[in-house]
Simulated scan of single mutants.
Amino acid sequence: MKIGTHDGVFHCDEVLACFMLKQLPEYKDAEIVRSRDPEKLSTCDIVVDVGAEFDHQKKRYDHHQREFKETLSTLRPELGDKYKIKLSSAGLVYTFYGEDVLKQLAPKGHLLTSEDLRLIYKKVYENIVEEMDAIDNGVPMTDDKPRYKIRTHLSARVHRLNPEWNSQSNSNVDEIFVKAMALVSEEFLYTVNYFISVWLPARDYVKSALEERSEVHESGEIVVFKERFPWKEHLFDLEQELGLVGEIKFAIFNDKIDSWRVQAVPVEPNSFVTRKPLNKSWWGVRDDQLSKAAGIKGCIFCHSTGFIGGNTTKTGALAMAINSLNAV
């Protein structure tokens, strides 16, 4: 078996595409042929990022041709219309082979249901593959001029492995390409493992907390988690599924021994703008001074922007949430 891609300077998208393909049993031992020669590429079983052709039936996955405008949403409409970034070779391979790749890489003991697999598939795309698609296709993160540059992202680290233009080294670029796949593998495997082993198990805990929210407080706007885990994305997704969009205002969770946190739910998972902040009169106040101001025992702190606070007990943290819920 042979996987074809272009020679010369390599980029993160075809490196990731080749790595993903080599996780599949049929391509595990495949030779990677790096060339732009049509005759050599014609001998390959699958070709990525070169050849000016996209044809899934023929296993040709280039995205550079003028007429190519495919996105994950256009090729997989069942996933919804949120994916609007044009695919790179990494995105094309992930579109058609991603679920099989994830099955191969799933940690032992994790049997993914079809629903779980669909969730993980979307999250891995959103958290690593989409980035490769955007960077390779020159899609800016924002319409505004960035206030600073990030030069240490995965695509940049892969690009740095290429020999410099004035390098006197006689390095074999094909061998360096293998090193690039090893670099990409670390990031990709971490992402897959995180979403399967850490992120996914948290979903059931968030769902249970939502179902029990009325037992916590009559408003149904406060949820309690028994420990600290990644809950924000699950909360937003499950609110949508359960018809509770925007209802949850505060989440309480155990941070460590004798330490509970009360966090205001943000308007978006990565935002510090909250649906309702903690009581504004507490912002930036700590310890005994905060306990006195709030009339609640065991207060530890309230952040200066009111998005999170702490108490030594669950009861105290809940009291802080209820007080803030009713504050003007």
Results as ranks from 00 to 15, higher is better:
H217W: 08
I222N: 04
W282C: 02
N172D: 15
N326F: 09
V198C: 12
S171G: 08
S89T: 07
N323I: 03
P201I: 09
G246I: 00
G284Q: 06
K58Y: 09
V285F: 08
S281V: 09
Y190C: 08
A319C: 01
W283F: 08
D204T: 14
I322P: 01
L278A: 03
E247S: 12
A251P: 03
A293N: 11
R160S: 09
P230A: 05
T113V: 08
L75T: 07
K28F: 01
L117F: 00
K82W: 10
T43S: 15
R118T: 14
M132C: 13
A319T: 00
V223D: 01
Y194W: 12
I322F: 02
Q263V: 13
L21M: 09
D288Y: 09
A202E: 08
K232E: 12
C299W: 08
K297I: 04
F236E: 06
M20V: 00
H303M: 05
Y148C: 09
R286I: 07
V173R: 10
H159A: 14
L112Q: 06
T43K: 14
Q240F: 03
G246A: 01
S324G: 10
V33K: 05
A106M: 07
G298V: 02
Y27E: 04
A327C: 11
R286W: 10
M141H: 10
G80C: 12
V245K: 10
D13R: 07
H153R: 14
V184I: 07
Q57R: 14
A293P: 06
T113K: 13
G316M: 05
L16I: 09
V158G: 00
F229W: 06
H217R: 03
L92C: 11
N137G: 12
L87E: 03
E215F: 14
G138D: 11
R66W: 08
L238D: 01
K40T: 14
E99N: 08
N193T: 15
V245L: 03
D258W: 06
D29F: 11
F19W: 15
R36M: 11
K82C: 11
S208A: 15
G243V: 02
L238I: 11
K82M: 13
A209Q: 04
F253Y: 13
E211R: 15
K103R: 15
A321F: 01
T71R: 06
V173A: 08
W199V: 07
A180M: 05
N323D: 14
E221F: 05
F177V: 06
E39F: 12
P269V: 04
D81N: 15
G109W: 08
Y27V: 02
H217T: 05
G220V: 09
L72W: 09
N270H: 13
V206Y: 06
P146G: 06
L318S: 00
P230F: 04
K145P: 06
G138T: 12
G220M: 07
A30V: 01
V267S: 09
L161T: 02
V224D: 00
L242M: 13
